[in-house]
């Protein structure tokens, strides 16, 4: 039987399946295996505005496509900033792109960090490794509306000092009044003046009011698990903890099934989840 579908139900993205050409405005090496691309529309065709925490699908002509979180300032919608780890068949050649090169972009997709809901609260941001990239837009938003929040704490862990992302920004944020920044590494040589140890060790030392805190966490799942335990121990409730999940994302629009996580699709129900809503599944293995 024929079916008529309501055309009002179409998505906010014009055709969410087709990449739109964007041009590399700036390519910058971050660490030995990460780099940041700043993109602008190649033919004036903009994408819908993104919210902190969302991601795009970046396409390298003929090679393939990868899901990459947006790591730029949400107040600047003209430039799309992505920090990418060169690990696969698509991201390795992407690392060699120079200014002027063209990429395909689809997006933005996914759920945002609760930056507005967090107003009035203290905000604790905990990042592990590349997990700082999807949290940076949230941090920009918090800083732009600094007076709307209580204390803001950024805790960040990386493997070694040379794996620390955005180190210049970290130091700037650290000296900026009203935001507490602490970062740590897993291992370091003698000349390192910073902290050594896992990111969880920073939590109990940070100053915030656990009862009125919104926590935003992004990093490997195991890191998030231990961070959540530490926050819960201090009295932060699960409704106030938000985590960004990573799963294999191919279509980004809920059709391909790859990013299923229990009853959710990470691409459209996530990647940012309120912890209490996925807690039973987050605690299971192999889901």
């Amino acid at each position: 039987m024929a079916l008529s579908t309501d055309s009002a139900m179409t998505s906010p993205v014009a055709n969410p399946m087709i990449p739109v050409p964007w041009r590399v405005q700036k390519a910058r090496r971050e660490t030995r295996d990460t780099f940041t691309l700043t993109l602008r529309p190649a033919n004036g065709e903009p994408l819908p505005a993104f919210a902190p925490g969302q991601f795009n699908m970046l396409y390298l002509f003929g090679v393939g496509e990868v899901a990459i979180s947006i790591s730029g300032d949400p107040a600047d919608q003209e430039n799309l900033v992505h920090t990418i780890r060169a690990v696969g068949t698509v991201t390795r050649p992407m690392q060699r792109l120079k200014r002027g090169a063209v990429l395909g972009v689809r997006g933005p997709f996914g759920s945002p960090w609760p930056v507005e809901e967090a107003e009035g609260n203290d905000v604790v941001i905990v990042a592990g490794g590349l997990g700082l990239a999807p949290l940076r837009p949230a941090l920009y938003r918090l800083l732009a509306h600094r007076q709307q929040y209580g204390r803001i704490v950024l805790l960040y862990g990386a493997r070694t000092p040379r794996d620390l992302l955005y180190q210049r920004s970290l130091d700037q944020w650290q000296t900026r009044s009203g935001i507490e920044v602490a970062y740590t590494v897993d291992a370091a040589a003698e000349d390192w003046r910073g902290n050594v140890g896992v990111v969880t060790t920073l939590i109990s030392k940070a100053r915030f009011d656990p009862v009125h805190t919104t926590a935003m966490i992004c990093g490997p799942e195991v890191m998030m698990r231990y961070v959540i335990m530490e926050l819960e121990k201090l009295g932060v409730t699960d409704e106030n903890i938000f985590i960004s999940m990573e799963r294999n994302m191919k279509c980004a629009i809920g059709f391909c099934g790859h990013c299923q996580f229990g009853p959710t699709f990470v691409c459209k129900d996530g990647p940012v989840f309120r912890y209490d809503r996925i807690e039973p599944f987050f605690k299971l293995r192999g889901v």
């Binding site: 024929a2 079916l3 008529s4 579908t5 139900m9 179409t10 998505s11 993205v13 055709n15 969410p16 399946m17 629009i253 809920g254 059709f255 459209k268």
Partner: peptide, 15 residues
Amino acid sequence: LESKYIDPMYKIRRE
């Protein structure tokens, strides 16, 4: 057809 996004390829076959 009834989720957040609509698959135009499915839609055209189904309709």
